[in-house]
Amino acid sequence: MPANKFNNYTNLGIGVGLRTAHYAHILNQAPKVDWFEIISENYMVSGGRPLEVLDCILDRYKVVQHGVAMYLGSPGPLDRDYMTKLKRLVERTKSPFVSDHLCWGSIDGNYTHDLLPLPYTKEAVRRVASKIKEAQDFLGVPVCIENVSSYAEFITSEMTEWQFISDVVELADCGMLLDVNNVYVSSRNNEFEPRDFLENIPHERIAQLHIAGHSDNGDHVLDTHDHPVRSEVWQLYSEVIERIGSTSTLLEWDSNIPDFSEVHAEAIKASAFQLEVLQHA
Protein backbone atom coordinates (compact mmCIF):
# COMPACT_ATOMS: atom_id res chain seq x y z
CA MET A 1 0.00 0.00 0.00
CA PRO A 2 1.48 3.38 -0.95
CA ALA A 3 0.89 5.23 2.28
CA ASN A 4 -0.72 3.87 5.39
CA LYS A 5 -0.67 4.20 9.14
CA PHE A 6 2.17 1.69 9.36
CA ASN A 7 4.58 3.93 7.46
CA ASN A 8 3.11 7.08 9.00
CA TYR A 9 1.39 7.90 5.70
CA THR A 10 4.56 8.22 3.67
CA ASN A 11 5.44 6.94 0.23
CA LEU A 12 9.01 8.08 -0.15
CA GLY A 13 9.87 6.57 -3.52
CA ILE A 14 13.06 4.62 -4.20
CA GLY A 15 15.78 4.71 -1.55
CA VAL A 16 19.27 3.41 -1.03
CA GLY A 17 20.90 2.03 2.10
CA LEU A 18 23.42 4.57 3.42
CA ARG A 19 26.87 2.97 3.62
CA THR A 20 30.23 4.43 4.72
CA ALA A 21 31.79 3.64 1.34
CA HIS A 22 29.51 6.25 -0.19
CA TYR A 23 29.82 9.01 2.41
CA ALA A 24 32.31 11.11 0.43
CA HIS A 25 30.33 10.88 -2.82
CA ILE A 26 27.03 11.75 -1.17
CA LEU A 27 28.43 14.63 0.87
CA ASN A 28 30.42 16.10 -2.02
CA GLN A 29 28.14 15.41 -4.97
CA ALA A 30 24.72 15.55 -3.28
CA PRO A 31 23.17 13.06 -5.74
CA LYS A 32 19.43 13.19 -6.28
CA VAL A 33 18.04 10.36 -4.18
CA ASP A 34 14.47 10.02 -2.88
CA TRP A 35 15.56 8.85 0.58
CA PHE A 36 18.16 6.93 2.54
CA GLU A 37 17.73 4.07 4.92
CA ILE A 38 20.22 3.98 7.80
CA ILE A 39 21.16 1.03 9.97
CA SER A 40 20.08 2.46 13.32
CA GLU A 41 22.80 0.76 15.36
CA ASN A 42 25.56 2.45 13.34
CA TYR A 43 24.38 5.82 14.62
CA MET A 44 23.43 4.88 18.19
CA VAL A 45 26.78 6.24 19.32
CA SER A 46 27.75 9.18 21.50
CA GLY A 47 29.60 11.34 18.97
CA GLY A 48 32.25 11.57 16.30
CA ARG A 49 32.13 11.06 12.57
CA PRO A 50 28.97 8.88 12.32
CA LEU A 51 26.71 11.54 13.83
CA GLU A 52 28.42 14.36 11.95
CA VAL A 53 27.75 12.58 8.65
CA LEU A 54 24.22 11.71 9.68
CA ASP A 55 23.42 15.35 10.44
CA CYS A 56 24.71 16.39 7.00
CA ILE A 57 22.56 13.71 5.37
CA LEU A 58 19.53 14.81 7.41
CA ASP A 59 20.00 18.36 6.15
CA ARG A 60 19.46 17.19 2.56
CA TYR A 61 17.55 13.92 2.55
CA LYS A 62 14.71 12.01 4.14
CA VAL A 63 15.94 9.18 6.31
CA VAL A 64 14.21 6.03 7.55
CA GLN A 65 15.69 3.89 10.31
CA HIS A 66 16.17 0.17 9.92
CA GLY A 67 17.54 -1.87 12.81
CA VAL A 68 19.31 -5.19 13.12
CA ALA A 69 19.47 -5.71 16.88
CA MET A 70 16.09 -5.25 18.55
CA TYR A 71 15.81 -9.05 18.57
CA LEU A 72 12.07 -9.13 19.11
CA GLY A 73 12.05 -12.93 19.32
CA SER A 74 14.82 -13.31 21.89
CA PRO A 75 13.88 -14.47 25.38
CA GLY A 76 13.69 -11.80 28.07
CA PRO A 77 12.56 -8.18 27.93
CA LEU A 78 13.57 -5.54 25.40
CA ASP A 79 17.00 -4.05 26.15
CA ARG A 80 16.22 -0.73 27.88
CA ASP A 81 19.57 0.83 27.06
CA TYR A 82 19.17 -0.13 23.41
CA MET A 83 15.62 1.21 23.24
CA THR A 84 16.59 4.50 24.90
CA LYS A 85 19.37 5.07 22.38
CA LEU A 86 17.06 4.07 19.53
CA LYS A 87 14.43 6.56 20.68
CA ARG A 88 17.05 9.31 20.91
CA LEU A 89 18.02 8.56 17.32
CA VAL A 90 14.41 8.61 16.15
CA GLU A 91 14.09 12.08 17.66
CA ARG A 92 17.20 13.14 15.73
CA THR A 93 16.25 11.63 12.35
CA LYS A 94 12.46 12.18 12.50
CA SER A 95 12.16 8.74 10.93
CA PRO A 96 8.45 8.26 10.14
CA PHE A 97 8.65 4.66 11.37
CA VAL A 98 11.33 2.19 12.35
CA SER A 99 11.79 -1.32 11.10
CA ASP A 100 13.58 -4.38 12.40
CA HIS A 101 13.50 -8.09 11.79
CA LEU A 102 11.14 -10.86 12.80
CA CYS A 103 13.93 -12.85 14.37
CA TRP A 104 15.95 -13.49 17.47
CA GLY A 105 19.69 -13.15 18.03
CA SER A 106 20.56 -13.05 21.71
CA ILE A 107 20.04 -15.18 24.78
CA ASP A 108 21.15 -14.76 28.40
CA GLY A 109 23.02 -11.57 27.47
CA ASN A 110 25.01 -13.24 24.69
CA TYR A 111 24.65 -11.74 21.22
CA THR A 112 25.11 -13.75 18.00
CA HIS A 113 24.83 -10.68 15.73
CA ASP A 114 22.74 -12.79 13.39
CA LEU A 115 19.10 -12.59 12.34
CA LEU A 116 18.07 -16.06 13.44
CA PRO A 117 14.72 -17.49 12.38
CA LEU A 118 12.09 -18.35 14.93
CA PRO A 119 10.11 -21.56 15.26
CA TYR A 120 6.67 -20.70 13.86
CA THR A 121 4.71 -21.38 17.03
CA LYS A 122 1.88 -19.68 18.90
CA GLU A 123 4.27 -19.10 21.80
CA ALA A 124 6.62 -17.19 19.47
CA VAL A 125 3.72 -15.16 18.04
CA ARG A 126 2.72 -14.04 21.54
CA ARG A 127 6.27 -13.21 22.59
CA VAL A 128 7.11 -11.16 19.51
CA ALA A 129 3.77 -9.35 19.31
CA SER A 130 4.00 -8.33 22.94
CA LYS A 131 7.46 -6.83 22.41
CA ILE A 132 6.43 -5.01 19.22
CA LYS A 133 3.56 -3.36 21.10
CA GLU A 134 5.92 -2.34 23.88
CA ALA A 135 8.45 -0.98 21.36
CA GLN A 136 5.79 1.05 19.53
CA ASP A 137 4.52 2.54 22.79
CA PHE A 138 8.03 3.44 23.88
CA LEU A 139 9.29 4.85 20.58
CA GLY A 140 6.15 6.77 19.68
CA VAL A 141 6.42 5.79 15.99
CA PRO A 142 5.14 2.72 14.13
CA VAL A 143 7.35 -0.37 14.19
CA CYS A 144 7.42 -2.53 11.07
CA ILE A 145 8.82 -6.03 11.01
CA GLU A 146 10.77 -7.60 8.19
CA ASN A 147 10.67 -11.23 7.08
CA VAL A 148 14.20 -12.68 7.32
CA SER A 149 16.13 -14.97 5.02
CA SER A 150 16.38 -18.39 6.61
CA TYR A 151 18.52 -21.43 6.01
CA ALA A 152 16.80 -23.77 8.44
CA GLU A 153 13.33 -24.65 9.70
CA PHE A 154 12.38 -25.94 13.12
CA ILE A 155 10.68 -29.24 13.83
CA THR A 156 8.55 -27.51 16.45
CA SER A 157 6.98 -25.09 13.92
CA GLU A 158 3.19 -25.25 13.97
CA MET A 159 2.42 -23.11 10.90
CA THR A 160 3.83 -21.67 7.68
CA GLU A 161 6.06 -18.60 7.72
CA TRP A 162 3.36 -16.47 6.09
CA GLN A 163 0.78 -17.57 8.66
CA PHE A 164 3.28 -16.79 11.41
CA ILE A 165 3.97 -13.30 10.07
CA SER A 166 0.27 -12.62 9.59
CA ASP A 167 -0.50 -13.68 13.17
CA VAL A 168 2.31 -11.54 14.59
CA VAL A 169 1.38 -8.33 12.73
CA GLU A 170 -2.32 -8.77 13.47
CA LEU A 171 -1.77 -9.38 17.18
CA ALA A 172 0.75 -6.53 17.48
CA ASP A 173 -1.22 -4.31 15.10
CA CYS A 174 1.98 -3.34 13.32
CA GLY A 175 3.23 -2.96 9.77
CA MET A 176 5.39 -5.20 7.67
CA LEU A 177 8.56 -4.48 5.76
CA LEU A 178 8.37 -7.03 2.97
CA ASP A 179 11.82 -8.10 1.81
CA VAL A 180 11.19 -9.62 -1.60
CA ASN A 181 14.70 -11.04 -1.86
CA ASN A 182 14.30 -12.72 1.53
CA VAL A 183 11.08 -14.35 0.36
CA TYR A 184 12.95 -15.76 -2.62
CA VAL A 185 15.95 -16.90 -0.54
CA SER A 186 13.78 -18.60 2.08
CA SER A 187 11.57 -20.18 -0.57
CA ARG A 188 14.62 -21.84 -2.12
CA ASN A 189 16.06 -22.96 1.21
CA ASN A 190 12.79 -24.03 2.80
CA GLU A 191 11.27 -25.36 -0.41
CA PHE A 192 8.03 -23.45 -0.63
CA GLU A 193 6.40 -21.57 -3.46
CA PRO A 194 7.20 -17.83 -3.04
CA ARG A 195 3.84 -16.88 -4.51
CA ASP A 196 2.10 -18.72 -1.68
CA PHE A 197 3.97 -16.46 0.70
CA LEU A 198 3.14 -13.30 -1.24
CA GLU A 199 -0.53 -14.18 -1.61
CA ASN A 200 -1.09 -14.96 2.03
CA ILE A 201 0.42 -12.05 3.93
CA PRO A 202 -1.69 -9.04 4.98
CA HIS A 203 -1.05 -6.67 2.06
CA GLU A 204 -2.74 -3.75 3.75
CA ARG A 205 0.00 -3.79 6.41
CA ILE A 206 2.96 -3.53 4.03
CA ALA A 207 4.77 -0.29 4.76
CA GLN A 208 7.91 -0.68 2.68
CA LEU A 209 9.73 -3.09 0.38
CA HIS A 210 13.32 -4.29 0.36
CA ILE A 211 15.21 -5.65 -2.60
CA ALA A 212 18.77 -7.00 -2.70
CA GLY A 213 21.10 -9.46 -4.38
CA HIS A 214 21.87 -12.96 -3.13
CA SER A 215 24.37 -15.76 -3.78
CA ASP A 216 23.15 -19.02 -5.22
CA ASN A 217 25.28 -21.88 -3.87
CA GLY A 218 23.28 -24.59 -5.60
CA ASP A 219 22.04 -26.57 -2.62
CA HIS A 220 21.32 -23.39 -0.67
CA VAL A 221 21.00 -19.64 -1.27
CA LEU A 222 22.67 -17.02 0.92
CA ASP A 223 21.32 -13.53 1.50
CA THR A 224 24.65 -11.80 0.83
CA HIS A 225 23.61 -8.36 -0.48
CA ASP A 226 26.68 -8.40 -2.70
CA HIS A 227 25.15 -8.59 -6.18
CA PRO A 228 22.65 -6.72 -8.31
CA VAL A 229 19.07 -7.87 -7.80
CA ARG A 230 18.49 -11.19 -9.61
CA SER A 231 15.83 -11.45 -12.30
CA GLU A 232 13.78 -13.93 -10.25
CA VAL A 233 13.54 -11.33 -7.48
CA TRP A 234 12.58 -8.53 -9.90
CA GLN A 235 9.83 -10.81 -11.20
CA LEU A 236 8.48 -11.29 -7.68
CA TYR A 237 8.84 -7.56 -7.03
CA SER A 238 6.68 -6.77 -10.08
CA GLU A 239 4.04 -9.18 -8.83
CA VAL A 240 4.05 -7.52 -5.42
CA ILE A 241 3.63 -4.07 -6.98
CA GLU A 242 0.81 -5.39 -9.13
CA ARG A 243 -0.88 -6.59 -5.98
CA ILE A 244 -0.31 -3.64 -3.62
CA GLY A 245 0.52 -0.64 -5.83
CA SER A 246 3.43 1.77 -5.76
CA THR A 247 5.30 1.41 -2.48
CA SER A 248 8.49 2.82 -0.93
CA THR A 249 11.32 0.55 -1.99
CA LEU A 250 14.88 0.25 -0.73
CA LEU A 251 17.90 -1.45 -2.27
CA GLU A 252 20.35 -3.05 0.18
CA TRP A 253 23.97 -3.54 -0.95
CA ASP A 254 26.34 -4.41 1.89
CA SER A 255 29.30 -6.31 0.50
CA ASN A 256 31.50 -5.80 -2.58
CA ILE A 257 29.86 -2.39 -2.73
CA PRO A 258 30.30 -0.65 -6.10
CA ASP A 259 30.30 3.09 -6.74
CA PHE A 260 27.28 4.99 -5.53
CA SER A 261 26.08 5.67 -9.07
CA GLU A 262 25.98 1.94 -9.80
CA VAL A 263 24.08 1.18 -6.60
CA HIS A 264 21.63 3.99 -7.27
CA ALA A 265 21.13 2.89 -10.88
CA GLU A 266 20.26 -0.60 -9.61
CA ALA A 267 17.83 0.86 -7.09
CA ILE A 268 15.95 3.03 -9.54
CA LYS A 269 15.25 0.05 -11.76
CA ALA A 270 12.47 -0.44 -9.22
CA SER A 271 10.82 2.75 -10.55
CA ALA A 272 10.75 1.28 -14.04
CA PHE A 273 9.21 -1.95 -12.76
CA GLN A 274 6.61 0.03 -10.81
CA LEU A 275 5.80 2.17 -13.84
CA GLU A 276 5.51 -0.79 -16.16
CA VAL A 277 3.25 -2.73 -13.80
CA LEU A 278 1.02 0.21 -13.00
CA GLN A 279 0.64 1.22 -16.66
CA HIS A 280 -0.69 -2.24 -17.41
CA ALA A 281 -2.95 -2.32 -14.37
Partner: peptide, 25 residues
Protein backbone atom coordinates in the same frame (compact mmCIF):
# COMPACT_ATOMS: atom_id res chain seq x y z
CA UNK B 1 16.09 -33.28 17.03
CA UNK B 2 15.17 -29.67 16.26
CA UNK B 3 16.07 -28.76 12.66
CA UNK B 4 14.15 -30.14 9.69
CA UNK B 5 16.21 -31.52 6.81
CA UNK B 6 15.20 -30.57 3.27
CA UNK B 7 15.64 -32.42 -0.01
CA UNK B 8 19.21 -31.13 -0.45
CA UNK B 9 20.63 -30.59 3.02
CA UNK B 10 20.60 -32.54 6.27
CA UNK B 11 19.69 -30.94 9.58
CA UNK B 12 23.41 -30.86 10.41
CA UNK B 13 24.28 -29.04 7.17
CA UNK B 14 21.53 -26.48 7.66
CA UNK B 15 22.71 -25.74 11.18
CA UNK B 16 26.29 -25.58 9.95
CA UNK B 17 25.43 -22.60 7.74
CA UNK B 18 24.54 -20.58 10.86
CA UNK B 19 27.66 -21.83 12.67
CA UNK B 20 29.88 -20.68 9.80
CA UNK B 21 28.11 -17.36 9.39
CA UNK B 22 28.54 -16.64 13.11
CA UNK B 23 32.29 -17.11 13.01
CA UNK B 24 32.84 -15.42 9.63
CA UNK B 25 30.89 -12.37 10.77
Amino acid sequence: RFIKPNSKLTSFQRLEIYNQQYWYR
